[in-house]
Design a protein around this nucleic acid. Structure first.
Lengths: 173, 173
DNA sequence: ACCTGAACACCGTTCAAGT
DNA sequence: ACCTGAACACCGTTCAAGT
């Protein structure tokens, strides 16, 4: 008499992600996800706390897929790592990606990552301000400055245009 | 035999905005808006092109409410004006405000304003970079620099945290 | 413990019809 | 031209019931 659930929380979120990438985010429906799992809609409620919780689970899955440098690493490295993680995520789940911009603080994991990026951006801007005020930039090679600003600019653009396609945002010079 | 429509596009959008502020954005429903206007849901379709178009109309209403400095004005003034317009909008329609971050390029008017902000931000960052590279900051009073960065930082924070309450974003130091 | 069946109130949208 | 009535397929979610 094995009770084999065969439909745990991870499977539900998996199915939702796949379905979203196939048919679009707005097609992710309790009925549709259930059908894809060969199960009744009501069966999902045992494993996720309703549709909001399902979407939150998808966001968490998106955010926790990649390791990030420690918070006290230099900000260009942190932003670059986030950019790479973001690009990978966008490539793997292009349709789910917009959720990141719509529900950024829905879960503790999401909040942690958002604060991580926010802290890096703030450091970047304040760092530039402090550096130029002290005239320290003359000690840097111009190429390094340009590179740092390229990273910063990409994030600004991503932050400013939530509706933009990730690839466009990340790939443009 | 006056045909007095008594329910034009503006009235539909008005009702939707009011209802959103009273009952939340997710309560804005074709049925609900129609009921508030004392009319059948299907009557709305003569004046707005479905629900998406209704939401787009609300975004446009939000964005076109305030005049902005010309595009060739100095960027701090442009960002400050946008900040003031945004704050007023957020105060008047707090529940509708998130639409701005969700559907930023839905209509031509929305696209124009987004490009306006994006250009100002880009100019701000590039301007700082160019200035420090040339060592020109020594000619500025530190107070002016601080003020410029305060404006820029607010916009960065707003851009980075779409889910944050506007008042918190705009009022915090 | 896990899933089903039947049902509920609601949603956006259509069509044909009234005036 | 503008609005209504009845209806459609669908949505999230509940409840009681099966095993």
């Amino acid at each position: 008499m094995g009770r084999r659930p065969q439909i745990d929380r991870a499977a539900v979120i998996d199915a939702a992600m796949q379905f979203a990438d196939e048919s679009g985010l707005e097609a992710v429906t309790m009925h549709a996800v259930a059908q894809r799992l060969g199960v009744t809609p009501m069966a999902l409620y045992r494993h996720v706390d309703g549709k909001q919780a399902l979407l939150d689970g998808m966001v968490e899955r998106l955010l926790t897929g990649y390791p990030l440098p420690p918070a006290d690493a230099p900000w260009p490295g942190r932003l670059t790592a986030m950019a790479e993680a973001t690009r990978s995520t966008a490539k793997q789940h292009p349709a789910v990606f917009p959720l990141l911009l719509t529900r950024p603080a829905a879960t503790p994991a999401a909040r942690t990552v958002r604060d991580y990026v926010q802290a890096a951006l703030r450091e970047a801007v304040l760092g530039f301000a402090a550096s130029e005020a002290a005239g320290r930039f003359r000690h840097h090679a111009q190429a390094v400055i340009d590179e740092d600003f390229a990273v910063l600019l990409r994030w600004l653009r991503l932050a400013v245009s939530p509706g933009a396609t990730p690839d466009v945002v990340l790939d443009e010079p």
